[in-house]
C-alpha cells in the first residue's frame, strides 16, 4: 500500500505505508482517527494527503528520516546525555535554520523521534556560545532594561567568581 503526500507547493510524494506510518498526522489521517482535527485533509484517496504547512524541501528531508526508520524504532525519549546514532547526527547537521524548519515540521506532523533529534541538533549548535553569539545566530534582540542588566551583571559576577575562585 502506498500513500501520496502533497506538500505546500503541491508537489506529490508517493511513500510506502511503513514510511508514512512514521508521520503521526498521516497515520491518523489514513486510519481516520484524528481526521476531525484538520491537521491534514484527505478528501479522496486519489488526491492524497495535503500537508499544507510543510514545504517540498522540508518534506523530502523528513521522508529521508522516515525511510531510514521505517523498520526500526527511533529514540523517542531519554535524558540530556543520550547519545544519538551517528546517522542521526549527520542527518540533522548544524544548519540552524534548516534544523528549525525540521523541528517545526516534526512538531506539526507529530513525529516524536525527529522532534527529539531536532532539539538535540539545536542544543549542539547553541552549546558553547555566549549570549551575544546566540542572539546573532537566532536573530533574537536582547531586550533587557538597564535595571535588569545591572542585576544580571551582579549575579554573573558572583557566579564567575564562585566557579573560578582565587
Amino acid at each position: 500500500m502506498s500513500i501520496t503526500l502533497i506538500s505546500k507547493e503541491g508537489a506529490q510524494f508517493l511513500v510506502s505505508k511503513p514510511v508514512a506510518d512514521r508521520i503521526g498526522v498521516v497515520r491518523d489521517c489514513a486510519y481516520g482517527a484524528d481526521f476531525w482535527l484538520g491537521y491534514a485533509v484527505a478528501t479522496d484517496d486519489s488526491m492524497g494527503i495535503t500537508l499544507a504547512n510543510v514545504t517540498s524541501s522540508i518534506l523530502s528531508k523528513i521522508l529521508v528520516w522516515c525511510e531510514h526508520y521505517k523498520d526500526m524504532e527511533p529514540l523517542v525519549d531519554g535524558d540530556s546525555n543520550m547519545e544519538f546514532p551517528e546517522w542521526d547526527m549527520a542527518y540533522i547537521g548544524h544548519d540552524m535554520n534548516q534544523i528549525l524548519f525540521v523541528l517545526e515540521a516534526a512538531d506539526y506532523l507529530h513525529i516524536p523521534g525527529l522532534l527529539l533529534l531536532a532539539c538535540k541538533g539545536i542544543a549542539d549548535v547553541l552549546d558553547g556560545r555566549n549570549p551575544r553569539g546566540i542572539c546573532d545566530l537566532l536573530g533574537i534582540v536582547m531586550d533587557f532594561s538597564h535595571r535588569q542588566e545591572v542585576d544580571m551583571d551582579k549575579e554573573n559576577g558572583y557566579w564567575r567568581w564562585f566557579l573560578h575562585p582565587t
Binding site: D127, P131, I140, M142
Partner: peptide, 29 residues
Amino acid sequence: DIMQRVVWQSHGAPYNPHIRLRQLQCVCK
C-alpha cells in the same frame, strides 16, 4: 527541552551547568 539539553549535556567545553544556564539566561527577557 532544547535549553535542558544545553544545560545538562555533559560533553562540550567547559562543562558546568551554571555557566551554561547563565549564558541562556542572558539572551533575552
